[in-house]
Structure formats: C-alpha cells, structure tokens
Deep mutational scan, measured.
Amino acid sequence: NKFNKELQWATWEILNLPNLNEEQVKAFIDSLRDDPSQSANLLAEAKKLNDAQA
C-alpha cells in the first residue's frame, strides 16, 4: 500500500543521511514506525536536521 512504500522510502533515506548521529536516526525511525502516515513530514524534518548539522 501507499503508506508502506512511503515508509520504506523514508526509512532508507533517513538511514542514508550522513550528518545524523545514531540516536537521531533511531528517533526518526521509531517515529516512522509509530505513525507511518507522517513519513513525508518526518523525512523533511530529518533532512532539515541533516543540513543544519552539515
């Protein structure tokens, strides 16, 4: 389904953001699992944090 694909994509993207530490990655992945419908928003937040920590 749509959420499953978005969840998989967001998870992959977050795992590959180079500037997030392990705790941050875990927190984003946990949030994705808690509410897959928020995957686009969570991915945007993760990318923003990744850029800020570059």
Score class of each variant (00 low, 15 high):
2 K>L: 13
4 N>A: 07
45 E>N: 09
3 F>W: 05
3 F>Y: 07
53 Q>D: 03
47 K>D: 02
31 S>G: 06
9 W>S: 05
39 S>R: 06
40 A>Q: 11
43 L>S: 03
36 P>R: 02
20 L>P: 00
48 K>T: 06
41 N>F: 15
8 Q>L: 10
7 L>D: 05
5 K>G: 11
30 D>K: 14
24 Q>D: 03
34 D>G: 13
7 L>R: 02
35 D>W: 06
14 I>Q: 01
32 L>N: 00
24 Q>Y: 02
18 P>L: 08
44 A>G: 06
21 N>I: 08
52 A>E: 11
40 A>I: 10
46 A>F: 02
28 F>N: 00
34 D>E: 12
2 K>I: 15
5 K>P: 14
50 N>H: 03
33 R>A: 12
22 E>A: 12
25 V>N: 02
8 Q>A: 11
10 A>Q: 03
52 A>D: 10
43 L>E: 01
37 S>N: 07
14 I>S: 01
4 N>V: 07
16 N>M: 10
31 S>R: 14
45 E>R: 15
35 D>Y: 06
52 A>I: 12
41 N>Y: 15
49 L>Y: 05
17 L>E: 00
11 T>A: 06
29 I>A: 03
47 K>S: 05
31 S>P: 02
34 D>N: 13
32 L>F: 03
39 S>V: 15
50 N>G: 02
1 N>W: 00
25 V>I: 09
40 A>P: 06
2 K>Q: 15
19 N>W: 08
30 D>P: 00
45 E>L: 15
22 E>R: 13
21 N>K: 11
23 E>F: 13
54 A>G: 08
44 A>H: 13
17 L>K: 01
16 N>K: 12
50 N>V: 01
36 P>E: 03
13 E>H: 13
16 N>V: 04
29 I>K: 03
38 Q>N: 10
22 E>F: 09
29 I>Q: 03
6 E>H: 09
27 A>D: 07
13 E>I: 13
3 F>Q: 14
17 L>R: 00
36 P>S: 06
36 P>A: 05
1 N>T: 04
26 K>I: 09
35 D>S: 09
31 S>I: 06
15 L>P: 01
2 K>E: 15
17 L>T: 01
52 A>S: 08
52 A>F: 10
24 Q>R: 02
50 N>F: 01
32 L>P: 00
7 L>K: 02
45 E>W: 15
35 D>A: 09
9 W>A: 12
46 A>K: 00
47 K>R: 13
33 R>H: 14
20 L>K: 00
1 N>R: 02
42 L>E: 01
23 E>L: 09
47 K>F: 13
39 S>L: 14
22 E>N: 12
7 L>Y: 06
13 E>V: 15
32 L>Q: 01
38 Q>T: 09
37 S>F: 10
10 A>G: 02
54 A>I: 10
9 W>M: 11
9 W>R: 12
21 N>L: 08
22 E>G: 11
36 P>G: 03
10 A>W: 06
2 K>S: 15
38 Q>F: 05
36 P>H: 04
7 L>F: 10
15 L>V: 06
30 D>S: 15
24 Q>N: 02
49 L>H: 03
32 L>M: 12
18 P>V: 07
42 L>W: 08
42 L>M: 08
16 N>T: 08
46 A>L: 02
11 T>W: 06
32 L>T: 01
48 K>E: 10
2 K>V: 12
11 T>D: 02
7 L>I: 08
14 I>A: 01
49 L>F: 05
28 F>A: 02
19 N>L: 05
10 A>Y: 12
47 K>T: 07
26 K>Q: 08
29 I>D: 00
18 P>T: 10
